[in-house]
Amino acid sequence: MLEVSQLNVQYGEVRVLENLNLTVDKGNIVAITGTNGSGKTSVLNAIAGIHPPSSGSIIFSNEKIHGLPTHQIVGKGLVLVPEGRQLFPTLTVQENLMAGLHSKGGLLLKNKLPQDLLKRFPIIKNRLNTSGASLSGGQAQLIALARGLISKPKLLLLDEPTLGLAPIAVKEFFDLILKLREEGQTILMVEQNLKQTLEIADYGYVLESGKLVMQGSGNALLKNSGLVENYLGFKNT
């Protein structure tokens, strides 16, 4: 579904990604992990068209998308849930969700949200008229995820989705991600919560200083003592 080849990204003179190769197959959860500053978010930003790559190619559903602006990439079914949620603060929850449907076209706003979305995110029902600014971190993250899913994207990009969440909210979030995978949703996620991420990931990539240093199935990476000691900083038990 997504194929990234020889991707290079530069911020001015600083090269943040070097010759990165990455593949995401349909229906899989793929995780990108690594330490702070390793270039994880830069990968998502390059794929989503926020910071175009300096060289390399990004093919999504057999179509070149590198160099396209973000709004066009979203139209092709690739949606990013950004780091820090980035809800629209003065819009209501309902309007935030409706904004997620922008790429679907139409003239008038719909009055009703899709039933399957309301079932999956029960929190929405009681907070439809609450402003984005009034939500707690956990609630905001769920609404941001719902906003990303409302347009039924082919590929969902998640950037640090559990950052700043309480442990219980993190667990609920990972349960939800697993349910989405069962329903066939393809996900590429960047996470610092390495253990939980690799436990649910079909495949994982480990970055260090913009370079790919390790890759493999989630389980294989978890069992890899080199990764554990050198990059994850915890002991495998």
């Binding site: 602006p69 849930v81 950004p82 629209f88 309007e95 409706m98 008038l108 706003l109």
Partner: peptide, 24 residues
């Protein structure tokens, strides 16, 4: 009441987040 109107409000509220919604 319209999709474009919501896009204008979304852009006004948070320009970078509006791009993630496919708003130009």
């Amino acid at each position: 009441r319209t999709r474009i109107g919501l896009a204008i409000r979304a852009y006004s509220d948070h320009p970078s987040a509006s791009a993630y919604m496919g708003i130009d």
